[in-house]
């Protein structure tokens, strides 16, 4: 079974049908990009895929385990080995970048080991020199790279990116593109929701358009 898999997902929000029968499987090592107009339900799709929103109907699988309907604690266990990067980084403002990256490492590590691992992850995304700074003290691009480092620090087998380059300048966006591509090349299943055409061109193995609540395959333009 594919690491990220959705089957027949339906979802209405506020009386409006957002997703009507979405099915999708992202294989290991594959980067799938979902595009669509603002408000088409792309973010809802990511949130359902990682269990932050329950679907009205359909089945959601992460790393081969069905996650819709799981209790909080089980859901947390099921998400081990999954990474998420959101628009605007979503780091905690009162922690340094390295503490932010270390936060999800949690139980398996001592605090020192977690921080060492965080430093390595930050170095890997090219933000190693700024690990001791707070999010407000670095550029938006660095914040977003730290968010990628946080998602990749546990070497996840599935990574979801929700509008990862929105609000970044072109140079910072291209650095993020490269990091997304690298995570797929290392064997993770990657799902990117975006409306950045350059990102799609540089990253996607597969492009899907979300229109009227349904996914349509589109040819990949290289």
């Amino acid at each position: 079974m594919a690491p990220i898999e959705l089957r027949g997902i339906e979802k209405s929000l506020g009386g409006r049908r957002v997703l009507s029968g979405v099915s999708l499987a992202v294989e290991a090592g594959q980067a799938a990009c979902v595009v669509g107009r603002s408000g088409a339900g792309k973010s809802v799709l990511t949130r359902i895929a990682i269990g932050l929103l329950p679907p009205d109907r359909g089945e959601v699988f992460l790393l081969g385990r069905r996650i819709d309907g799981l209790a909080r604690r089980e859901l947390r266990a099921a998400r081990r080995g999954v990474g998420l990067v959101t628009q605007g980084a979503a780091l905690l403002g009162w922690l340094s970048l390295r503490e932010n990256v270390a936060l999800p490492l949690g139980d398996g590590f001592s605090r020192r080991a977690a921080l060492e691992r965080a430093d390595a992850a930050l170095a890997e995304v090219g933000a190693g020199a700024e690990g001791a700074r707070r999010p407000a003290e670095v550029s938006a691009g660095t914040r977003q790279r730290a968010a990628v480092a946080r998602a990749l620090a546990l070497a996840p087998r599935a990574v979801l990116y929700d509008e990862p380059t929105t609000g970044l300048d072109p140079a910072a966006s291209r650095q993020i593109d490269a990091l997304i591509r690298r995570s797929a090349d290392r064997g993770a299943a990657v799902l990117v929701v975006t409306h950045d055409p350059i990102l799609v061109r540089r990253v996607a193995d597969r492009v899907l358009e979300l229109r009227d609540g349904v996914l349509h395959d589109r040819p990949v333009v290289v």
Binding site: I50, G51, R79, R80, V82, G83, L92, P104
Partner: peptide
Amino acid sequence: EQLPALEALG
């Protein structure tokens, strides 16, 4: 989105 992001990261 800090809380949902952290929850999603386990």
